[in-house]
């Protein structure tokens, strides 16, 4: 079930639902590809709280708490790799990840900064 074909079939990455969901799906996809039972859900209301647009990564079937240390390590590496690949400016605090700037996802699947 962790085959490449499974990853490609099930983990479609949506390009039309905003940069946050796109980024979160990319990270979670990379984690699932390496066997980690990762899920994500949006966190915080950027307009109400004045926070960044962010999401939380949690273990499947568990509450959104602290991750196990090895899972947390894998999450940090995955976020770093995806951010470097797509040149996205992100902030990570434990299992919370936020985009520092407003982005738009282009049709070719790249992050473009919104001016």
């Amino acid at each position: 079930m962790t085959s490449r074909r499974y990853i490609k079939r099930v983990w479609r990455v949506p390009k039309d639902r905003g940069a946050l969901e796109y980024f979160a799906t990319l990270v979670v996809k990379a984690l699932v590809k390496h066997g980690w039972p990762a899920r994500w859900k949006p966190c915080g209301d950027p307009e109400a709280d004045g926070w960044l647009d962010g999401f939380v990564i949690y273990e499947q079937g568990k509450d959104t708490g602290d991750l196990p240390p090895d899972f947390q390590n894998a999450t940090e590496i995955a976020v770093r790799i995806v951010a470097r690949t797509y040149r996205v400016d992100v902030t990570q605090h434990y299992n919370w990840v936020g985009l520092n700037r407003p982005y738009v996802v282009t049709t070719s699947g790249h992050f473009k900064e919104e001016k």
């Binding site: 079930m1 390496h34 066997g35 039972p37 499947q60 090895d70 894998a74």
Partner: peptide
């Protein structure tokens, strides 16, 4: 990314 030692 390190692999999960006990994958689902």
């Amino acid at each position: 990314i390190p692999d999960n030692p006990e994958p689902l």
